[in-house]
Simulated assay, not measured.
Amino acid sequence: MRLHKIKRPGGLYTFDFSTVAEDDDGTWLLAPIGSPWRAPHDSGRSTVPVVVLLATGRPWATWWVGDPADRRLEIDVCLPPTRIEEGWQYVDLELDPVLHRDGNRVEIEDWDEYDESIRTGNMTSDDAKLALVTAEGCAQLLRRRSEPWLERGWKLLADAG
C-alpha cells in the first residue's frame, strides 16, 4: 500500500506501508525499517519504524516515529485524507503539532513553511484557516493525552520493533 503526501508546490512524497488494522479510529499503517520512500529530490529506505493513523473526513494524519534519538508523535495537518486505488493520499497544510516523547514537549512546527505557502498563494485562505484551527486543536489533544489511540500507536510501533 502506498501513501502519497502532496506538498504544494514541493511535489509528491510517496511512502510504502502495510495495513495493520482498521477500526473506529481509522486505518493503521506500518512502515518498518527499510521501507521505501520517494520524494521529488531523492529516494531511499526508512531508517526508523513508523506507524500512521489515517481517517477520511479528518484534516490530519498521525505519525508515530520510532527514532531512538527523538521518539515523537507528529500530526500532519492536511486536507482530509482520501482512499485511492493504491492506498491513501492527502495534501499537506504545512503545520505539524509534535509530541516529543522524551520530555513530553509539545510544539507546532513549520510556521515558516505555512507562512510561505500563504504568501506565495500555494494555500488558500480557507485552507490556511483550517490548518491553523486544526494545528491548535491537535496540539491541545497532544498535551491532554486523553485519546486512547495515542497510546495505541506507540504499542503498534513497539510490536513492530
Rank of each mutant, 00 (worst) to 15 (best):
W149K: 05
R119M: 06
Y114K: 01
L3C: 08
V98Q: 12
L29Y: 04
L150D: 02
G34P: 07
E113L: 06
P40A: 08
G26A: 08
V50Y: 01
Y90A: 09
V50T: 13
W149N: 04
A31W: 04
Y13Q: 11
G103I: 14
R101V: 14
R144T: 11
Y13I: 07
S117T: 03
R143T: 06
V65C: 04
W149C: 07
L142K: 13
D24M: 02
H100R: 15
W88K: 03
P81C: 07
G44T: 05
A131D: 09
A61T: 12
T47S: 13
Y90P: 04
T56M: 12
D16R: 14
Q89L: 01
T19Y: 00
P81R: 07
R83T: 11
T120N: 09
L150Y: 01
G57R: 09
H4R: 12
R71K: 14
D112V: 03
D112E: 13
L150N: 04
V52F: 01
D159P: 00
H4A: 08
T19Q: 11
G87K: 02
L132Q: 09
D112K: 02
V106Y: 02
D67T: 00
L73M: 13
D92R: 05
H100A: 12
L99S: 09
V65L: 14
W64A: 07
P81I: 14
V98I: 11
P40Y: 10
E113M: 10
E147A: 14
Q140D: 15
T47Y: 02
D110S: 03
L141K: 12
G161K: 08
C78S: 15
G57Q: 08
L150M: 09
R83W: 00
W154D: 06
V98K: 08
S18E: 15
K155W: 08
E147L: 03
W149M: 07
H41R: 15
E74R: 15
E94M: 15
K129A: 15
L30F: 01
Y13M: 06
N104R: 12
R83D: 01
R119N: 10
D16H: 10
A39G: 13
W64T: 02
D25A: 12
L99T: 10
